[in-house]
Amino acid sequence: MPLKQNLHPSNRHNNGYDFLALCQSLPTLKPFVHTNKYQNLSIDFANAKAVKALNQALLKYHYQVNQWDIPTGYLCPPIPGRVDYIHYLADLLVISLPATSTLKESKVSVLDIGAGASCIYAILGQREYQWQFTCTDIDPTSIKVAKQIISADKSFKKSITCRLQPNSSQIFNGIIEEDDRFELTMCNPPFHRSLAEATKGSARKVKNLAANKKTLTPSLTTSPSVSLNFGGQNAELWCEGGELAFINQMIKESKSIQKQVLWFTCLVSKKDHISQLKQTLNKSKAKQIKVVDMAQGQKISRFIAWSFLDESQQKNWFNLV
C-alpha cells in the first residue's frame, strides 16, 4: 500500500506498508487488516487499537523493536512522518561537520523535548543513526512508560535516558545541566491554544476519517473526547498560547545555553508563525536560522532551526567534543 509521496529519500517507508510482511512479523496485526475500496490492504485508521498494532508491527519489522506499548489515551505517532524529522536533522548536521568527518563517525547527542510515552524519536534516531538521546517530559506517566520501553532493549539502555521536567512552565531550564552538550535539540510542540481548540481539531479529524470511510464507526459518535489514534494527553496537544508561545519560550530559554547546543530545532505546524519566530530569533541574536520543509504528499510540514554559533564555530564543534 503506497504512502504519501515525497518522504525523505532515506526514509525506508517510501515504498509504503507491506501488510503481508508486517502481519507475518506481528500476527496480532492481522485481524485489523482488510481490503479497502481501492482493493489495497489497509487498516481502519480511526481504530486506536489497529493503529497501535500497526506501529508495533512497523517497529518490529523495520527497526527490530520487539517490545513497544503505550497506555490508552496517549499519542500514537505515525512512524513515517516521525522518522522523516530524524533524517532531515541528519542532513542539518552534515553541513556543520568538518570536511574530514562523516556523520557516522561523529558522536551525536540529542535532547528530545516532550518525548512522550512512545519515546518514538529516540527509538528511530538510535536505530537509524545510533544517536544518543535524552528524553524529557512533564508527565510522570510518560517518563515511566518510556523507561519501560528503553529497559526492554539492550541498545536503548546504553543510548537513551529520561529526565522529568518538574516545572511545566519551563522547557530547557531545569533540564539541561552545566556539563551537558547536545548536537541537536528537537521538539514536536503542543500546537493548540486550549482544550476546546484541541477537541475541535480531533472532531474535525473524526469527520475527515468518516468521509473517507463513508460510514462512521459508532464509537466515534458517542463523545468528542473519545480516545483516538491521533488523540493524546493535554500536554501533548495544547498549552496556553499554542505553539507560537511555546516556541517563543523555547527561543528565550535557549539564549542561556547557547554554547551547549549546536542546533536548536522545533517543528512548526502553522506556516504563518515562521515570520514571527524569525523576528524573535533575530532579536535574540541567533547567528544562523533555517527553515526546513518536509513534504509529505499534499501536506507540507516543517521545522525551524537556529544556532548561536557561526559556521566556523560549528565546524570546530566536533573537534571539541
Rank of each mutant, 00 (worst) to 15 (best):
126 Q>N: 12
121 Y>V: 04
241 G>C: 10
153 D>K: 11
210 A>L: 06
104 K>D: 15
227 S>C: 03
16 G>M: 12
202 S>T: 04
118 S>C: 11
238 W>V: 01
220 L>K: 04
53 A>N: 08
314 Q>P: 01
61 Y>N: 14
152 A>Y: 09
254 S>G: 09
87 H>F: 10
90 A>V: 06
269 S>M: 07
135 C>D: 07
137 D>Q: 13
191 F>K: 09
98 P>Y: 08
230 F>N: 05
191 F>W: 13
48 A>T: 12
216 L>C: 13
239 C>F: 01
177 E>G: 08
44 D>F: 05
61 Y>K: 15
244 L>N: 14
239 C>V: 14
23 C>W: 07
272 D>G: 07
183 E>L: 02
21 A>D: 13
287 K>A: 04
146 A>I: 03
274 I>T: 14
122 A>M: 07
175 I>N: 06
314 Q>T: 07
211 A>N: 11
229 N>I: 00
19 F>G: 08
127 R>W: 08
238 W>A: 00
5 Q>I: 00
229 N>H: 03
236 E>D: 10
249 Q>P: 06
200 K>W: 09
206 V>N: 07
52 K>A: 09
81 G>E: 07
28 T>H: 13
205 K>P: 00
174 G>M: 14
242 G>M: 08
149 I>G: 03
37 K>R: 15
123 I>A: 04
114 G>I: 03
45 F>A: 04
163 R>V: 15
184 L>E: 11
114 G>Y: 13
314 Q>I: 05
262 L>C: 09
180 D>M: 07
58 L>P: 01
23 C>D: 10
229 N>C: 05
173 N>H: 13
78 P>V: 08
167 N>K: 13
8 H>P: 03
52 K>P: 02
118 S>H: 03
124 L>Q: 02
25 S>Y: 08
212 N>T: 09
38 Y>A: 08
98 P>T: 05
5 Q>V: 02
105 E>M: 10
259 K>M: 06
65 V>C: 07
1 M>H: 08
173 N>L: 12
89 L>H: 13
77 P>L: 04
139 D>Q: 13
223 S>C: 13
91 D>L: 04
309 L>R: 14
197 E>D: 15
200 K>G: 04
27 P>F: 11
45 F>Q: 03
70 I>H: 03
124 L>K: 07
193 R>P: 00
15 N>M: 11
114 G>L: 09
3 L>R: 13
30 K>F: 00
231 G>Q: 01
56 Q>K: 15
302 R>A: 05
282 N>G: 10
201 G>S: 14
130 Q>M: 01
118 S>L: 09
223 S>A: 11
173 N>G: 11
315 K>R: 15
128 E>C: 11
272 D>Q: 15
242 G>S: 01
150 I>N: 06
81 G>V: 04
82 R>C: 03
13 H>Q: 14
267 L>K: 12
32 F>M: 06
185 T>C: 02
236 E>A: 02
274 I>W: 11
277 L>H: 11
25 S>T: 15
50 A>N: 05
185 T>V: 05
